[in-house]
Amino acid sequence: MELKTVIFYVFALIMLVAAVRVITARNPVHAVLFLVLAFFNAGGLWLTLDAEFLAIALVMVYVGAVMVLFLFVVMMLDIDAKRLRQGFWSHMPLAATLGVLMAGEMALVLSSEYFGSASFSGQTMPADYSNTKELGRLLFTDYVYPFELASIILLVAIIAAVMLTLRHRRDVKHLDPAKQIAVKHTDRLRVIQMPAEKEEAE
């Protein structure tokens, strides 16, 4: 067996085990961490397929951003795992049917003439071929217009999100250091002239 094949099976095995643990782990935080492990191994699999851009994107976007966010959410939410597991067996028949149905559909698609492995020729690229570079070239030449449009859509999303959620509250007790430094003694202390002793009204 070639070394590459060995590596493939190692990655694939760890990924499958991690994926199964995602749904069987009792602690939600552990489940998220197993998902991270599965993503890492999927990234490794893509690397062995020479799809280095996808591998980097998966690790950076999913592991680096999405899953960290997930982890925060899971840690902050008070999840009652016991209550969630209630009714598992009563929903089981429906869920199993749906699962089998989806697996069957996927099998049909993968064995069809469009997507079967026979329809993909095993085209090999020269060793110095970089698909990251190719993707970058396409994005910034032929697809520069939709690429820029997508970036403007992101800008719109940022503006809309800030507009809808930013509230300037008046009752927040935060301090402005600049104002604290700029304070003068007259702002803090007011000297009032008053007679030392109240005269008796006689």
């Binding site: 939709p146 449009l149 997508a150 859509i153 719109v156 999303a157 503006i159 809309a160 507009m163 809808l164």
Partner: peptide, 17 residues
């Protein structure tokens, strides 16, 4: 079709907000 869709999304997202 790609630019048509992106234009539509840009319009719709702004309108939702």
């Amino acid at each position: 079709l790609l630019t048509l869709y992106l234009g539509l999304e840009m319009l719709s997202l702004s309108l939702y907000a």
